[in-house]
Simulated assay, not measured.
Amino acid sequence: MLDEGSVSSGASSPEPEAPFTPKYRVSISDHVNKDGDSVRFTIQVSQNGLTIQVVEREFEDFEYLDHCVSTGPNSLGLIVPPVPLRSATDPYNAEMQSRKVMGKESKTLIADEFQKDCQQLQKYLELLLSHPVLGKNQKLHDFLTQKEPPPRTKVRRGLMGRLSDTLEARKQWWPDSEEFFQRERDWVAKYQPALTNAASSFAAITAAHLRMGHQLEAVVTALKLTNCPNHHLHHKQFNNINTIFLECLDNIKGSIDEGGFEGERVFGGVLGLWQRYVGCEAAMLLHRTCLMVDYQACNRALDKAKPNRKEAAEKAKREAEALFEECSDAARQEIKHFQRNRVVELQAGLESYVNLQLTSARSTLAALSSALTQVKAISL
């Protein structure tokens, strides 16, 4: 019997006999088909090195796939990879997003980020395909192999569903019956807001890169209008210095732009992914906590059950125990795999970003040094 504070059976899932090999490989083209607010992504599906299907899917199809794999019969205790956030496609939201990044008074519109969307959606599919349980999901198989997208069903959350979510959220502070899961819950409670803050700070750095690049472009444009007629020697000298300065600023702008866009690709996307992924782990842990609370309630009900209700109480207890143990067994393996991948990917992304910034800084230094050398060589 499992009472508050006691430890469960401690049964663990057996280690897989061999590493799981994804059945398919996917590649999403950077070229999308946009019709109004609708954006269609082209997915090339291959197996054993051969292309077996090319399909087009809208973002709503990915959202419905996420719903299907998250609520599937074998999803208990799994940390389901998060579907990426939808980018702004209509003019109004695109303008609001641009002002958020470039400043409230800015009239500069940021170009569509469909390339970024394609990369994130491809990563999402790769995470699903490489998962030993979700990779075998029939809905995922249909999503990739059927020419037409599976029919979507509108998912609605009614009042009772929202009330249920509220009641379940209140159980997140319930003491866990196992030290392993209690430590993991405590870690998530501290790590999730820290990662959110890191992602927000990095987004601010990327926005600063974009604003600086646009400001340098404005300076370059203004300097191009200051050239003087070459009638006098000092005019020629000024034009020569101005040309050197323009080339220098243009090179610096290129380094800043590359540092911003590439930085977002190599590390910003990784931060955003794992920020959402940790949220998925928190949701899984909360679900397991709710199953634990239900199991404990069934134990108490069995202790207090009258003889004529004993059989029903025992059945309810066995069902609650089976769900709780199934979830716990799967969750142990999921958490270990999740933490290994988190460390590897965040470290790789951070190293790539640091190398990118060093390259950008060296390029800027080289441009400034070259400009200074050329200016010193001009006879004044």
Results as ranks from 00 to 15, higher is better:
L109R: 05
E321L: 14
R86N: 07
V32A: 01
R86T: 12
L216F: 12
G263I: 11
Q275S: 04
L85G: 10
T373I: 08
L223Y: 08
S9Q: 13
K310F: 12
Q237G: 11
W274Y: 15
A366F: 11
M1V: 10
C118R: 01
E262C: 13
E126H: 03
M102T: 02
L210P: 04
S164P: 03
P307E: 13
R288M: 12
N355Q: 15
F324R: 13
S352M: 09
L216H: 05
R185W: 09
L302I: 13
A366I: 03
E319F: 08
K306D: 11
L216V: 14
S255L: 03
T206G: 00
E264H: 14
R152K: 15
S177W: 00
T373G: 06
N308L: 02
T108Q: 00
F202E: 02
E4P: 15
C280A: 12
Q339W: 04
K34L: 10
A371S: 13
E314P: 04
Q120Y: 01
F59C: 01
T42M: 05
D329Y: 00
S8P: 02
G49A: 07
P151R: 09
A282R: 13
Q347I: 00
P193T: 09
V45C: 09
P229I: 07
F41G: 03
T364N: 03
C228M: 14
A111R: 14
L127I: 00
E326F: 07
